[in-house]
């Protein structure tokens, strides 16, 4: 790929850089217990909680496994489980 003058790049291109493999634990959402408050998504530093079929889901392409979502979930519906390598 040719370099761009002045190293100017298109916005939003970091979506091509997957940070999911930084993870050593993964959040698992108990959809039964989930109250759909959206706090997990709000508190994710990596914007890796997405809405799919009216449910919150972890985007494992990007989730780094920091565990903030699990800690902040008021319904305690998110558990961190060790990532299988």
């Amino acid at each position: 790929m040719k370099i761009t003058p002045g190293a100017v790049v298109k916005g939003g291109t970091s979506l091509h850089y997957k940070t999911g493999d930084w993870r050593d634990q993964r959040p698992v959402i108990d959809q039964e217990a989930c109250q759909k408050c959206g706090i997990c998504r709000d508190v994710c530093p990596d914007d890796s909680i997405k809405v799919k079929d009216e449910q919150y889901e972890i985007d494992t392409d990007f989730c780094k496994g920091c565990g903030i979502c699990a800690h902040e979930c008021p319904a305690q519906a998110i558990k961190m489980v060790p990532e299988e390598k």
């Binding site: 003058p5 002045g6 190293a7 100017v8 790049v9 298109k10 916005g11």
Partner: peptide
């Protein structure tokens, strides 16, 4: 290229 919200680009990589 110029700083334009209609075509967001990033400078200073």
């Amino acid at each position: 290229n110029y700083l334009d919200p209609a075509h967001p680009k990033s400078w200073g990589s």
